[in-house]
Structures are given as C-alpha cells and as structure tokens.
Design a binder for these strands. Sequence first.
DNA 1: CCGGTTATGGGAATCATTCTTATCACCGGG
DNA 2: CCCGGTGATAAGAATGATTCCCATAACCGG
Lengths: 147, 147
Amino acid sequence: MSVDLDTTVEARLRDAGQRYTPQRRDLLHLLAQAASPVSIPQILADGDELKQSSVYRNLAALEQAGVVRRVPTDEEYGRYELAEELIGHHHHLVCSNCGTMRDVEVPAELEQTLDRTLDRIAKRAGFARVEHRLDLLGLCGTCAAMA
Amino acid sequence: MSVDLDTTVEARLRDAGQRYTPQRRDLLHLLAQAASPVSIPQILADGDELKQSSVYRNLAALEQAGVVRRVPTDEEYGRYELAEELIGHHHHLVCSNCGTMRDVEVPAELEQTLDRTLDRIAKRAGFARVEHRLDLLGLCGTCAAMA
DNA sequence: CCGGTTATGGGAATCATTCTTATCACCGGG
DNA sequence: CCCGGTGATAAGAATGATTCCCATAACCGG
C-alpha cells in the first residue's frame, strides 16, 4: 500500500503542476502512519527536520492536490489526515477534554442507512453532492480516569 | 418560548455568578432567531450596537454558562448557536462552497440507531459520556446554480 | 549545461481571538 | 438615599496560529 500511496500522490501532484519532494513524502508518510488526524504541533515536534513555514505550505499543496484533508476541531490549531479516497471512509472519536482523535469505522449497514436518509433530507433542502461527517465526542480513558 | 428562554438563561448566568445584561439578551435573541449557527462577522454586522470585544467576551460567558455553543467550521471564524438543551438536538447542513449552515433534524429512529451503535463503539474504545455530531456537507442551491 | 519554474526557510505580515485597563452600571447594606 | 464592591463595557494592545514575501536552492526539460 505504501508504494501505491507514493505513486498515487505523485500523480496527483503532477496533475496539479507540483512536485513530489522528499519533504512532502515525509509528511505523507507521517500522516499515513498516524491513522488519525495529526496536529501541526505534533508534526513539527516529530520530524524536526520539517520547517514550520514549509509544513504549512506543503500541507496546503497536498490539500489542493486532494491527497490530504484539513479536519476542523474545537482546538486552536488544525489537524490533517489523508484524504478518504486514500484511506477509506471513516469517522472520528474525539476526546472533548484533551482533544486527541482516533479513527473509527461504523458498520456498513449504518453507513447505508445514513446515506439514504441524509440524501433525502439534503435533496429536500436543495443541497447537491452531499456527504456526511460523523464524530463521536466523549472522554477518552485517560481523561476519564483523571476526572 | 421566548419568555422561557430569558428566564432560563438568566438563571444559568446567575448560577455562574454573572449577570443577564441587555447586551447578552440581544445576543441570545439574535441566536434564537437565526435557527442556525451564526458567525462573528454576521453578529457584528447585524446589531451594530454590539462592540467586537464585548461580543467575544459575552459569547465566552454564555458558553461557560452552558447556554451557547461554539460550532467548529472549515472557515476562518467561529460560529455560535444556542445549546442543544435549549433548542433541541439537531444537525447541520453545511455548504462546502459558501459555508452557510442550516439546522436540520433527522428521524428519531435514525437517532436511536446511531446512539445505540456509537455507544457500543465508544465503549469498546474506552470512551465515556459519548454524544455524536453529524453534519451534512454539500452544495447549497445558490452555489450549485453558479457552478 | 542553461533557463525557467517550483520548492525551501527565515522572518515579517495578517487576522481572528484574547487580554488589559480604565471607566461605567448594578445591587445590597447602612 | 448614598456608598462600596463586584461584575460589565469599550478601546486598544497583545497573542498566536496561519499566511505571505523574498532571496536562495533544487529540479526538469531541452
């Protein structure tokens, strides 16, 4: 899958008139290994070869190329994950205390029910090209233990 | 309902050691009439009696008192809505182009299925006190027409 | 190998949000 | 009825994440 990932990403970037540089590869692999949205501070702390301005610029480039997605959070800084096209449709378990996120999947059956129902609702409201975003908010084990 | 709202909010603020001032009442009513999360710029544009720093401070106060909720968005500024306790559980229809939001409700049956399934998932992951957030992302009628 | 184009890194600029501080409004006690 | 204390307001300064700028470096096609 890793090889595939590199090839796919390179192609996407090329299409967008951009290069697949070592730094961008590092970013991609960092996100790929995380299996959950990673915050900018985490990225900067981890691979300390990565310069702040370059990280922001490259994440923006990758986002434009459609291989990375910015995830909105309640916290003050952004988190990024690989696009669903690359890692598949999923949802997030979010700790409302410490902010950590974890990827989760829900039964295919529930996804189908959701899509059917939500499509109907969206259509009625005049919305097109609808997808859904479902998050679970709660207290992670660590934070619950401290409370 | 409006009278009820004022009374409830006043009580909540009092409990938090804060007052229910005219400015806070205005904010509340603005949010109550919107029936969808309102952005700071919208608030400032609308009631131009409201000073920026006061709006931020008061929204924070109201949030702490649990009568208002900050909604995370993809955009650069925050949106606020009344707490679900006051207006009921609901979800959002979000235009991924222009960012406007609209409240929607889904069938009670789906809500139940969701809660049951998600509770199980959360428990398995060691999360406590879980609730869900479900958004619909698409193109609103206006933006779809322009595309 | 050259020329043009894209990427990098460092720091400056931006912009939403938060903080500071000096008044101002309210409310209860004397 | 007035005073004192506490909380609210307003205006601007400060903060901090993100974006922009620019000079230099890496890449790619010819």
